[in-house]
């Protein structure tokens, strides 16, 4: 069983490697947007820091966001969305594999492959930029370890939230519409449109109670030292709970959707 998922994973990786130009231009895009956002927020922040969130930290936050771009955005695996919309998904029922797990693995593979292909060049170049614009080193080694752990959980959480897009595609048969809606909500509430530390504090408090900021905001803020180690540990715990909840709900929803599809005959 394990082998099946490993090979799905490999396939996604290979697929992603086919698109050389896409990866290179992806890196260029991320880099350009990074610079743009840093300039923008610098202009807004004007003074050196906002409630302890300094310009250097902001720059690092942006660069981490650009490097791990793919892991931040819930979406839908191209072929899965297409298959569901045109009804070809019923062919998948003939395979001895759990569809939730398959889609989860496929999408995780796609995200991971595109991240692994792109993050290093961005990180390297961003580290070499002049002080205010550069990506700094993590505050300390413990923070770095916690960053890695929370980033992995965040990536998984992103994929488990993406599974809701798949469910909604079953309901609406419109992969593009549902993906956009889910992604936009997650982006705004997860700090991918405006960094959460730059939002009014009342809003920040609300966002702590939602799962979205645990995708990328938490790991990034642990890395830059905007969240202390103790707080970081607690919040990692919370993010694990969110991961569990979203997976369980996602599995139930998709099981339900599949049942309906089988009854209707696809």
């Amino acid at each position: 069983m394990k082998n099946t998922y490993v090979s799905i994973f490999k396939m996604e990786f290979k697929g992603e490697l086919q698109y050389r130009a896409k990866a290179i231009s992806g890196i260029a895009t991320q880099f350009f947007w990074g610079i743009m956002y840093i300039c923008l927020y610098m202009a807004f922040m004007s003074s050196d820091s906002v409630d302890g969130f300094t310009i250097t930290q902001m720059a690092s936050y942006i660069w981490l966001g650009q490097s791990f771009f793919a892991l931040r955005f819930p979406g839908i695996h191209k072929s899965a969305g297409y298959e569901i919309a045109n009804g070809n998904v019923c062919y998948k029922f003939t395979r001895p594999i759990n569809l939730y797990n398959q889609w989860f693995t496929e999408y995780l593979g796609e995200k991971l492959a595109s991240t692994l292909l792109r993050f290093l060049p961005i990180i390297v170049i961003a580290s070499l930029l002049p002080t205010n614009y550069a990506l700094s080193m993590p505050v300390n080694f413990t923070a770095f370890i916690l960053f890695i752990i929370s980033l992995i959980i965040g990536g998984l959480l992103c994929v488990s939230i993406s599974m809701f897009s798949i469910y909604l595609t079953f309901v609406t048969l419109s992969p593009k519409g549902t993906t956009t809606i889910v992604a936009t909500i997650a982006n705004l509430l997860g700090g991918a449109i405006i960094p959460i530390p730059l939002m009014p504090s009342a809003i920040q408090n609300v966002l702590n109670f939602l799962p979205f900021r645990y995708i990328s905001d938490l790991p990034f803020r642990i890395y830059i030292g905007n969240i202390s180690i103790t707080h970081g540990l607690i919040q990692i715990g919370i993010s694990l709970i969110w991961l569990l909840i979203t997976i369980v709900i996602g599995k139930l929803l998709i099981k339900n959707a599949l049942k309906k599809t089988i009854i209707q005959g696809g």
Binding site: K176, G177, T178, T180, I181, T184
Partner: peptide
């Protein structure tokens, strides 16, 4: 449905 959802999504973005 698709049209409505897409419009909604566009506006939401």
């Amino acid at each position: 449905t698709n049209m409505f959802l897409l419009s909604f999504a566009q506006i939401l973005v």
